[in-house]
Design a binder for these strands. Structure first.
Lengths: 65, 65
DNA sequence: TTATATTTAGGCATATATCCCTAAACTATT
DNA sequence: AATAGTTTAGGGATATATGCCTAAATATAA
């Protein structure tokens, strides 16, 4: 989970998005984006899907790390 | 979620595994495997990870559909 | 420094993922 | 047909993901 969070942060920053911008695009709460990147929670598939969409990538690429 | 479930079923059957065998290998309850394949639930990352491991594939490949 | 933006943190409430159980329905196999 | 294996179904209990909130800490900009 922490590995995924680290990768997500990298992807997000590569797109020059703030957590808030990502949370808005993905329609996910900012606090949740933070928790996911920190590996504090165990996100659900729907959340992962929303994040991938917001980043403009596929779920497959979200896990390409 | 239903698309993922359909893909999972395909992958599981390709490995000649019963739901019970997969549930045992992944240490996930059989009822949960059923629900995931049917798209009745929104699985968590840890569950997805366990399933991928049990199938002998990466998370990335679990979403290659 | 001062102000602005971003990240980090945590509490509370609600929804639901997961486990554990039983049992029925369906599908081979003999 | 009868037996065994597999899938489908649902109920109850528990843990936790998520949303919403406030606020502090850190980073960036002016």
């Amino acid at each position: 989970m922490i590995a995924f969070g680290n990768n997500l942060r990298k992807l997000r920053q590569a797109k020059k998005l703030s957590m808030e911008a990502l949370s808005y695009e993905a329609d996910i709460d900012l606090s949740q984006v933070f928790r996911i990147e920190k590996g504090l929670v165990n996100p659900t598939l729907s959340t992962l899907h929303a994040i991938a969409n917001a980043l403009g990538i596929t779920l497959k690429d979200l896990f390409d790390y």
